[in-house]
Design a protein around this nucleic acid. Structure first.
Lengths: 151, 151
DNA sequence: TATTGTTATACTCTATAACTATA
DNA sequence: TATAGTTATAGAGTATAACAATA
């Protein structure tokens, strides 16, 4: 567990496979985002905002961060012109956060770079193996989401 | 891409599946390590040291960090009694880093907690599906390692 | 001269606690 | 009183540049 992606042993157990794969994907995303001078968490923030204008509170829940952490995160993104705060019309305590055109362009670019990496990762798999892999990963994700919901 | 693991859509594409799965695994590992008051990168450091006594330089390469970052990382781990620096016998510039008994016990404990989570994640898959998933993840990891080596 | 590691510095990211404004 | 968000503060993590010791 937590061993670096540089040593993918011949016979991986499930734990090592999951850990090493997650480090590989995260490292790839970090590298691509870094090319546009943005961190992973900032990329996640922009990714969430692509189809929503959540409140600070909702962002904290979605990112699983303290609300004060989100304040700083949005501060830095706003300073770079990537997101905008707007006061809610219904509740004057509430702030809604949205992407600027520049933020949207940036997250689109990072997503495209990352997508190229993912394509390269599955290049050696047959079409059928790719579909199987995505299907099984999806089942793990859904099972986890349902487990959480049930609790 | 980079959307939070809280929304595993019904039909995932490869990019979303990879990203969401990696965030799920990393979040799980972070939570378990956090129970022992340790960060992911500290966990990775201890994980590497389980079967090696690398130099600071080698650690920087394995963790893909600047050597100055590793200095701080090892400083904090050493202050907590988890690792030890030892001077190399052959080259007096070189420092070798190793686990203390306490560090080994800690990383073993975190690994066990994480392993339980991984088991739960694949609980809904049949034995054969689990094997297939691990095999396909392994092929992606090996292909990536070979690609890097070839370059 | 080149390499190993540390130090100084600056920034991002994160949480806790205290605070303000609004409900 | 309760909730939404910010501020103050402290610490981890990271990189760049300059440095000391050794090769």
């Amino acid at each position: 567990m937590a061993t670096p992606p540089s040593r993918p042993a011949a016979d991986l157990n499930t734990v090592d496979a999951f850990a090493q794969f997650s480090f590989l994907v995260q490292g790839t995303l970090e590298r691509r985002a870094g090319e546009r001078e943005i961190s992973i968490v900032q990329t996640r923030l922009l990714g969430i905002l692509r189809d929503r204008q959540p409140t600070m509170n909702e962002l904290a829940r979605l990112l699983e961060l303290d609300k004060s952490s989100v304040t700083g995160l949005v501060d830095r993104a706003e300073r770079r012109g990537l997101v905008e705060r707007a006061p809610s019309t219904s509740d004057r305590r509430v702030v809604q956060v949205g992407l600027t055109a520049e933020g949207r362009a940036l997250v689109t670019d990072v997503a495209a770079r990352f997508e190229a990496d993912v394509s390269a990762m599955v290049e050696s798999l047959s079409t059928s193996d790719r579909a199987t892999l995505v299907r099984l990963l999806g089942r793990v994700l859904v099972a986890h989401a349902n487990g959480r919901a049930a609790v």
